[in-house]
Amino acid sequence: MMVSEATGMSKLHMAIFAVLLAFLVALPFFVYPVFAMKVMCFALFAAAFNLLLGFGGLLSFGHAAYFGGASYVAAHAAKVWGLTPELAVLCGTAAAAVLGLVIGSLAIRRQGIYFAMVTLAFAQMIYFLALQLPFTGGEDGLQSVPRGRLFGIFSLQDSLPLYFFVLAVTLGGILFLYRVVHSPFGQVLKAIRENEPRAISLGYDVNRYKLMVFVLSATFAGLAGAVKSQVFQLASLTDVHWSMSGEVVLMALLGGMGTIFGPLVGAAIVVSMQNYFATFGAWVTVMQGVIFVLGVLLFREGLIGVLSRWLKRPL
């Protein structure tokens, strides 16, 4: 029982994913597809971040670097090199993986609070590069990125084909991350999170595992950012700003760190909040701050964490 729950997909989770898929297939016929696509991109971003924090126990405060970095590279690949959407997304994702490897191998040399500060500082460096490098368009970012033809065949001009492309990529990414968490690799991660000295004494090369999970997390954060640049036809400084790193932390905290579905719920709430309260200006920032404070003081398990405790099932 325990083994199958640890490494296979439980029936409950399979059912939830099936319902989610059905819901997402129907969704564009009821809500504005671009909004739904934004939520899906951020859900993948939050899930990738949660792999690192919730399962690896590593708080990165600089995930905007991979999300935004990939968004810039993918936008550049589609706009300047004229690549098809899937290749542009691949370029962005690969760039995020390389960036994650470089920053991750430096950051894992420090633990805890220092790790968070190091990742934040490197992300700020990426922000300055995005502001200054010749190909990034400075304050304007990269605008009017063409949507192109998927595999050179299917036009993604219209929202609906684009929507299903985004759905396939993001849900595929989320399922892959689910698989990672429930693999033997994921079990080792949990062991390191719970008791690092013991994992070392059991013979695991802890730093290698930490670096691997960091690179994986950065890669999928990059995948989310690359897809987002194709949806909005835009890569901008917002994507690499520290407030973006803060937002993804908020999504994970609000939904429930270390849960499977928490980050997805958190992403949906945070993105909807921005969307519907956009006219309130800086009050959105204040509200996000209040959710952070309340979340840390009263509600550390997050929404799905609480639900999971009530139902006595891991969600």
Partner: peptide
């Protein structure tokens, strides 16, 4: 003072939230 017994990362998250609130209010 409610967080001293918890993981130190919660202090970072709490003070980040406080920073957002203070900055947002002054921006308004």
């Amino acid at each position: 003072s409610r967080l001293y017994k918890l993981d130190h990362l919660y202090g970072l998250l709490l003070t980040f939230g406080l920073a957002l609130i203070i900055q947002g209010l002054f921006r308004n």
